[in-house]
Design a protein around this nucleic acid. Structure first.
Length: 417
DNA sequence: AACTGACCTTT
DNA sequence: AAGGTCAGT
């Protein structure tokens, strides 16, 4: 029910936010595996759900353009904390093409027609609020240009790719959405993850409306994720062994004061947040680092995956000594310290740029600048990196290994009532 | 404390 | 093999 609330098409009602392309590149930032909620619905146009609303974003050289799709008859309340949804029905097109992309809840489409929310508040304030939502989501208060400068000066390998991959920012995502999306990424393909997150929202998230035949859903709430039968449902949706991780993690968080527990970690030190996350089923060191970096304001967190490990070996000669067969926790800690020493307190941001540049889908971008650049100096700076391992603790709460606070290990708690 | 395989599916 | 995690040694 309410599956087919009609979302208004993008008219000429773009809003603009001053933002240079060197500060933000939508294509790189939205498709590099941080969030799996955005699709390029048209050339240079990215549509997705953020903060309980459906957005379409695009950009010019100097501005970020955005539009929020309003439901024409939506009764689906946004699950967000703010309930004030200034939905103003403009066109009341008879709901036509119910082209069921979901095939799940096929309903006879009823005429969208109920109490049209009488405008109870002036809508003008909403636009400022939405601009602020974007600034927060993209963390536009952080000057990426300055950071690129610093990283490039400190690291010739970063400098080598910087010009080809500008505007790669770390998103500030909702912690719940980030956590449960990232759990899905473990031992998985990016191409597959997109579909999984999509089906997750389709199956358990509140419907927000339909646009161009595609239905959009909010990210599932913790209660929806923790519900009985969720594991089996997700198994059917192709989540494999991750299905119980999602359900059990949700239940565990709910038992620990719900979303406030997660959001509270934003104010906690990196090491503490990392440790707390690792207590959740399906959350190891790498996933915890991703969540810390992309939703909990831990800019120093460096997720070490196979790509970063390859980079470390190839570019920074980080095999000196021993090369574990797999990426161990110790290796992740050591590499975290190493990259924080190299890149500084926002090492996680720099890592995101390097990771992005490593993705196969973005290799064409690399070629372009490579031709311009020189291509002779290759192995130049492969020096000892072991030296850097020493004074790496100089950055406050850098490494996420200290902290012997409280055990709080539930992890394998089966059906702990 | 640090390593080694098994593990759901899909490219 | 894929942007790992878990349990056992």
């Amino acid at each position: 029910m309410a599956e087919h609330a009609l979302l208004l098409p993008v008219g000429n009602m773009w809003r603009y936010l001053a933002c240079a392309k060197s500060e933000l590149r939508l294509d790189l930032t939205l498709a590099c595996g941080q969030s799996f909620r955005w699709r390029e619905t048209a050339e240079g146009h990215w549509t997705g759900v953020m903060g309980g609303r459906v957005w379409t974003l695009s950009q010019t050289d100097e501005a970020l353009r955005y539009h929020v799709h309003r439901s024409s008859g939506g009764r689906g309340e946004p699950a967000g904390p703010r309930e004030r949804r200034a939905g103003v029905p403009l066109h009341t097109e008879g709901s036509s093409g119910g082209s069921s992309a979901g095939a799940v809840n096929e309903e006879e489409e009823e005429e969208e027609e109920e109490e049209d929310d009488e405008e109870e508040e002036p809508v003008t304030e909403d636009t400022d609020e939405e601009a602020e939502m974007l600034r927060d989501y993209f963390q536009l208060n952080v000057s990426l240009g300055d950071l690129y400068q610093q990283w490039g000066a400190a690291d010739p390998h970063f400098q080598r790719i910087a010009a080809s991959f500008p505007g790669v920012r770390v998103l500030r995502q909702d912690p719940t959405e980030c956590l449960f999306s990232i759990i899905c990424t473990a031992n998985n393909h990016i191409s597959r993850i997109h579909g999984m997150v999509d089906r997750l929202c389709q199956a358990l998230g509140a419907p927000l409306g339909t646009l161009d035949g595609t239905s959009y859903h909010d990210f599932p709430s913790l209660s929806a994720l923790a519900g009985g039968g969720v594991e089996a449902r997700l198994r059917d949706l192709g989540f494999g062994y991750r299905a119980p991780f999602l359900q059990r993690s949700a239940a565990q968080i709910l038992a620990a004061d719900g979303p406030r527990w997660l959001e509270g970690l934003r104010a906690a030190p990196y090491a503490e947040a990392h440790e707390a996350l690792c207590a959740l089923p399906g959350v190891g060191a790498k996933v915890a680092n991703c969540v810390c970096l992309m939703s909990l304001d831990k800019a120093e967190a460096v997720p070490v995956d196979t790509h970063v490990w390859q980079i470390a070996k190839r570019d920074y000669g980080y095999t000196a000594g021993k090369a574990p067969k797999s990426i161990t926790n110790k290796l992740q800690r050591d590499l975290g310290v190493f990259f924080r020493t190299l890149w500084g307190p926002r090492a996680g941001w720099a890592q995101s740029v390097r990771f992005c540049a490593e993705l196969k889908k973005f290799q064409p971008l690399r070629e372009t600048a490579q031709l311009k650049k020189e291509d002779e100096d290759e192995d130049e700076d492969k020096k000892e990196v072991t030296v850097a391992r020493e004074g790496a603790k100089a950055e406050g709460s850098g490494n996420a290994k200290g902290g012997r606070n409280k055990p709080a290990r539930h992890k394998k708690a089966k059906t702990s009532a």
